[in-house]
Write a protein that binds this DNA or RNA. Structure first.
Length: 271
DNA sequence: CCCAAGACCTGGCGGC
DNA sequence: TGCCGCCAGGTCTTGG
C-alpha cells in the first residue's frame, strides 16, 4: 500500500501515542518478513522509552536511548494503535505493548515489510546509507535531477522511482508527477532537459504534498476498533485510468509496462 | 557502473 | 461454487 504520503500519515497518526511512552513488551508471532525480524527486538526494546518517530523515505524509525526500531511497510503493511486489547487476527505479526495499555500492532499480509533493531546509527545502516534525498527537501530540485540523469538511458519513470536518486516516489506518484510535468514516462532520463526536470521536481513535490495533506484531513483513525485505514481518496489524473479520457485533452490514457510496473500516460499531453 | 529481470508473498478479481 | 491466471501501492539481488 504505502507510498511516501501513506508512511508520513502513519507517522503522524501514531506519533502522539508512542512518543514519550515506554515499551513494556514486544511479541513477534511471525518473524518471516522480508528479512527475519531482529531477535534482539523482543529482547532489547522492552523497558526503552520511545523518544521520537522519524521517517526516512518509506522507512519509519523509532528512536530509543539504546537502539532504534526500523520499520518498513513493504507493499501491504500497516500499523495501528489499539487502546483496548483484541486478539490478533491473521497477518497481524508483531505487537509492541506500551505503558498505559497502548498497543502498536503491525500487520502485513504479503510480508514484504521489515522490522530491524539497530544499535548503531540507523542512517548508516546499509538499507538507508545510500538513499537519495527526500523529495520534499530543498536539495531535491530540477538541477539535481538533471545532473544525475546525464548519460543515462533508463526510462525517466524508472529513474524517478530509483531510491538512490530520490526516495519515496512509488508507482502511483511517478505516473502522476510525469503527467503533471508533461513528460512521457518511457523517455530516456538522459534525454530530458533541465527545464523539464524543473517541472518534474516541482510536480513530484506538489503531488506528494497534496497527498500528505489529504491524508492529514481525511485522517484515518489509527485507533479505530474496526476497519482498515483507507487509502487516500485522492485526485489521480492517470494512475489506474487506462482507456479513460485524459482529464486535460480527452485523449485516451495509455497503459503500458515499464520495469514490470503498470504505467499510464497521455500521449498528447506527455512527450 | 548501468540496466532489465527475477525474486520474495498473499489475496482479490475476472474468466471459464 | 471452484480453479486458474493475472494483478497489486516495494525494493533487494542477480546476471548480462
Amino acid at each position: 500500500m504505502p507510498e511516501l504520503p501513506e508512511v508520513e500519515t502513519t507517522k503522524r497518526g501514531i506519533a502522539p501515542y508512542v512518543e514519550g511512552r515506554r515499551v513494556e513488551a514486544v511479541q513477534v508471532r511471525e518473524s518471516r518478513l522480508r528479512w527475519p525480524v531482529s531477535p534482539q527486538l523482543a529482547q532489547q526494546m522492552p523497558g526503552q522509552l520511545i523518544q521520537q518517530v522519524r521517517r526516512r523515505g518509506k522507512y519509519l524509525l523509532f528512536d530509543t536511548a539504546s537502539g532504534c526500531m526500523l520499520l518498513h511497510l513493504g507493499m501491504s503493511g500497516s500499523v495501528r494503535v489499539l487502546l483496548e486489547p483484541r486478539p490478533p487476527e491473521k497477518h497481524e505479526h508483531v505487537d509492541i505493548a506500551m505503558a498505559g495499555g497502548i498497543l502498536l500492532r503491525y500487520k502485513d499480509p504479503r510480508r514484504f515489510g521489515s522490522l530491524h533493531w539497530l544499535t548503531t546509527d540507523p542512517l548508516q545502516h546499509p538499507l538507508l546509507a545510500s538513499l537519495g534525498p527526500e523529495p520534499l527537501a530543498a536539495e531535491f530540485d530540477g538541477d539535481y535531477l538533471y545532473r544525475h540523469s546525464r548519460g543515462r538511458k533508463i526510462a525517466v519513470k524508472n529513474f524517478l522511482m530509483n531510491a538512490q536518486i530520490v526516495v519515496g516516489v512509488g508507482n502511483i506518484y511517478a505516473n502522476e508527477a510525469l503527467y503533471h510535468a508533461g513528460i512521457a514516462p518511457g523517455r530516456a532520463a538522459g534525454a530530458v532537459g533541465l527545464q523539464r526536470y524543473r517541472r518534474l521536481a516541482a510536480a513530484v513535490k506538489d503531488v506528494l504534498q497534496a497527498a500528505i495533506e489529504v491524508g492529514g484531513t481525511t485522517l484515518r483513525d489509527f485507533t479505530a476498533a474496526e476497519g482498515e485505514p483507507g487509502y487516500f481518496s485522492q485526485q489521480l489524473y492517470v494512475y489506474g485510468r487506462g482507456g479513460e479520457p485524459c482529464l486535460n485533452c480527452g485523449a485516451l490514457v495509455q497503459t503500458s509496462r515499464l520495469g514490470q510496473r503498470a504505467t499510464y500516460h497521455c500521449r498528447r499531453c506527455q512527450r
